[in-house]
Write a protein that binds this DNA or RNA. Structure first.
Lengths: 163, 163
DNA sequence: TATTGTTATACTCTATAACTATA
DNA sequence: TATAGTTATAGAGTATAACAATA
């Protein structure tokens, strides 16, 4: 039988938060001191977009500039990120991962991915295909139009989104 | 080609947090005063499991008892939930939605589901089937064994999980 | 004046540790 | 002693409003 958009929405509303809990717990468990999800995602973004400005991070994470500023404060204090003002426009902030930031992100990501892989290792390859297909559909459906880049990325470039 | 468990994990790690941001934003946008996701999920749980005890909520949300206690504090203060001690074992706390709690949850849920439905209304019915199938697989993969009920639910019952 | 960030303030989220009350 | 919750404390997440600096 044909599922309505509402059926689909209902499933998402129930399952996504549950998965998120598991992922968050794992990310925290596999990093010391613990990375929160916003921190983890900010590091991922900066790893893909070296030299992004603060507003880029805020856009990616759907945060206010204020919230993003505080988030970056914490990352800078933990020596995971550097924050410098752009000489060509001193209102702008240039953000980069430190070596420690790259290492910490990679380690947390690897450990968490391995945990998740363990969870899906028990299902059939067919089911894994189903999950991957659905994630790719959802990725398109949920990602807003990528906002214009106005940071230090290559001119005209957009954010580098995974895969 | 055959996707590895790791491929699957990588997709999940990227897409789930992004979806979660969207869902959270919508839940907040469609409730006044705003419901946070933990509050929203606690109300959903109590709607399905009237008379659950605090530990049940903590288990469902993967929170410590302490965190759950504070969460419920807020819901009680907002008159969304009642909290009473169980006469048969006064260590235990019996939680129930108030009429306002039911109403507020239902309204936020409806509005959010409609938003999500709008997002998936643009894709094909086939793709919606793919999403629903994947969510059901993921629901099984990610839900831990349902913990024993020790609250006020029917004897021997387990938590009522959606669908 | 418009843009980019920061600071002040005020919540909630979440954990650990120490505690109370009950069984 | 073991179980169910609460309180104290602390750092992070997040928003709005007010501000500073730069263009």
């Amino acid at each position: 039988m044909k599922p309505s958009p509402r059926d689909c929405a209902t499933e998402l509303l129930e399952v996504v938060p549950m998965m998120m809990r598991v992922i968050r717990t794992e990310v925290r468990a596999h990093s010391t001191p613990e990375l929160t999800m916003p921190q983890f995602r900010a590091l991922a973004f900066l790893g893909r977009n070296e030299g992004a400005m603060l507003g880029d991070v805020a856009g990616f994470l759907t945060l206010t500039l204020s919230a993003a500023s505080k988030l970056v404060d914490g990352l800078v204090n933990a020596d995971l990120v550097t924050r410098e003002s752009d000489p060509s426009d001193r209102r702008k902030i240039v953000l980069k991962l430190t070596a420690a930031g790259q290492k910490k992100y990679a380690a947390a990501r690897l450990a968490t991915a391995e945990f998740l892989a363990g969870r899906v290792a028990g299902i059939s390859a067919t089911d894994r295909v189903r999950i991957i297909d659905a994630m790719q559909i959802l990725h398109r459906v949920f990602s807003d139009e990528p906002p214009e880049t106005n940071g230090h990325l290559a001119k005209g470039a957009r954010y580098k989104l995974p895969s």
